[in-house]
Amino acid sequence: MHSHPSFENPPALGHEVVVETLERALRDRSHEAEAATVLVGSALNDDDGDFVEHWCVQVGTRAVQGSPLLGLAGLCLGHTARRFGRLGDEALALSESLAVRAEADPSDVDGLALDGYDDVRSFLHLW
Rank of each mutant, 00 (worst) to 15 (best):
E20W: 01
V100D: 01
L98T: 04
G88E: 13
L98H: 08
Y117E: 15
R101E: 14
V57F: 11
A113W: 14
D119L: 14
D110W: 03
N9H: 06
S67C: 08
L94G: 04
G111V: 07
A33C: 02
V100Q: 07
R29T: 12
D48P: 12
P106F: 08
G74T: 01
L75E: 02
A25E: 02
T37H: 02
E32F: 08
S67H: 05
V17N: 12
A73P: 00
L92I: 11
L13I: 00
R101S: 08
S6I: 12
A33H: 03
A43T: 11
L69R: 06
H4L: 05
A99D: 13
P68L: 11
L87M: 09
R29V: 13
L44G: 08
S3F: 06
Q65K: 01
D105G: 06
A81F: 00
F51H: 09
L126V: 06
E103I: 13
V120R: 07
T21S: 15
R27L: 02
D115T: 12
L22Q: 03
D119C: 04
A73E: 02
L92G: 02
L87F: 08
L98C: 07
T37S: 10
Q58I: 04
A91T: 09
L114G: 04
L98P: 11
S122L: 15
N9G: 04
E103M: 12
Q65S: 10
L94V: 09
A104N: 15
V38C: 15
D119N: 05
V38M: 10
A73N: 01
G111E: 01
T61I: 03
L94S: 09
E32R: 02
A63H: 01
D28S: 06
W55T: 09
R29W: 06
F84D: 12
G85F: 12
V40R: 07
H2A: 00
D119T: 04
G14E: 15
V52T: 13
N9A: 13
A81I: 05
L94K: 11
V52G: 06
R121E: 03
V64P: 04
L77W: 08
R82T: 10
M1T: 10
L72I: 12
R24K: 15
G88N: 13
